[in-house]
């Protein structure tokens, strides 16, 4: 297992380099202009000077290699310096990956935005799982019952109606009409006492629940299918013939075997917590990573978009590996060598 992990990690390195190059190339080919949002009164020479000052005067391969140097060498060095409070070499003049729009290092922006995204999306993912697993188990165990039919209907709705629609419906209903929850997520809000905690809960409910419903409807379908698959297996009949309690049959034999593929799906879905739900964050004005990415794309902030997208790619590769390793740990029939 250890060797397998090491080998997979080594294989990930060339993969990630190819991915970073592709992202860079696509962004370079895109017809966007970092000076495009500036007022039209600015003369063309000045615009050209701005571009050159951003480093756009250099040819494409040089720019790519410089980004690589900044991201793979300078940023990690900077992180190490910050963690251990030391300085390595000429740390004053070392160039970090800088956002063109805000002129601050991209990594700092990400660190700033990460907590909001992790809280809202992480919570929605956890709640989604907690809803999905019992629903999937019960609807499989009582297949075609009323509970199953209603569960199927709700998950079909939750899955097929996009979050930007459910989100807006929620805002119209709960914020405008009923006035229960705020429609805008206030990131500057700090929890100091019970009242402010309650406000935090209220402003989180809508974005979290909209995303949780979406996650839960996917996962509960998956859980149900996996349970149905295992319920009809011969070893379940064996377990019943052993005279086990129905509870043990269901929880020990069926559920544990059914969770193997579901855990894999959950692990594969985890990067999207970091990636942020771009649309949902936009609707509820949660200024997390998804919103950061949108702003970056709109302003042609190539270093920001490049770095964010690449970090998502790293997370996806990493969680793919984690899902594979989890599978090997959960299923004794699978051994990696």
């Amino acid at each position: 297992m250890f060797n397998y992990t090491i080998r997979r990690l080594l294989f990930a390195i060339p993969t990630l380099f190819v991915i970073s190059f592709l992202i860079f190339a696509i962004l370079d080919l895109a017809p966007n202009d970092p000076t495009g949002n500036l007022p039209l009164t600015i003369p063309p020479e000045v615009r050209e000077n701005i571009r050159i000052s951003l480093g756009l005067g250099e040819p494409f391969p040089i720019r790519y290699l410089k980004w690589c140097q900044q991201f793979f060498i300078n940023e990690p060095l900077n992180l190490i310096e910050q963690w251990f409070d030391i300085s390595i070499g000429d740390s004053e003049n070392r160039l970090r990956v800088q956002s063109w729009a805000t002129r601050s290092p991209v990594v700092d922006l990400i660190v700033e935005r990460l907590p909001q995204t992790l809280w809202v999306l992480g919570l929605s993912y956890v709640i989604g799982i907690l809803i999905a697993i019992p629903i999937g188990v019960i609807s499989a165990y009582k297949q075609y019952s009323i509970f199953d039919q209603i569960g199927t209907f709700i998950s079909m709705v939750g899955f097929s109606v996009p979050t930007f629609f459910t989100g807006l419906v929620c805002i119209v209903f709960f914020s405008s009409t009923l006035g229960w929850f705020p429609s805008i997520y206030d990131t500057t809000h700090e929890v100091t006492d019970l009242a402010s905690f309650w406000f935090q809960v209220k402003q989180m409910i809508m974005p979290v629940m909209v995303l949780a419903l979406f996650n839960a409807s996917q996962l509960s379908r998956f859980m149900r299918a996996s349970m149905l698959d295992n319920l009809s297996q011969d070893y379940v009949r064996t377990a019943r013939a052993k005279g086990l309690k129905e509870r043990s049959v269901l929880l020990i034999h069926v559920l544990r075997n059914s969770l193997i593929p579901v855990v894999t799906v959950i692990a594969l879905g985890l990067p999207q917590i970091f990636a942020g739900a771009i649309i949902t964050e936009q609707i509820f004005r949660v200024n997390g990573l998804g919103q950061l990415l949108i702003i970056g794309i709109q302003g042609a902030d190539i270093p920001l978009v490049q770095t964010l997208t690449f970090i998502f790619a790293v997370l996806i590769v990493l969680f793919n590996l984690i899902a594979d390793i989890l599978y090997g740990m959960l299923d004794p029939r699978i051994r990696y060598e």
């Binding site: 011969d234 070893y235 009949r237 064996t238 013939a241 005279g243 075997n257 299923d331 004794p332």
Partner: peptide, 19 residues
């Protein structure tokens, strides 16, 4: 009463919990 009556199943592959 299941302690008194047991069954040996046809498919030895499928009737044992793989985990």
């Amino acid at each position: 009463i299941r302690t008194d009556m047991q069954m040996i199943f046809q498919d030895p592959q499928a009737c044992l919990n793989p985990r």
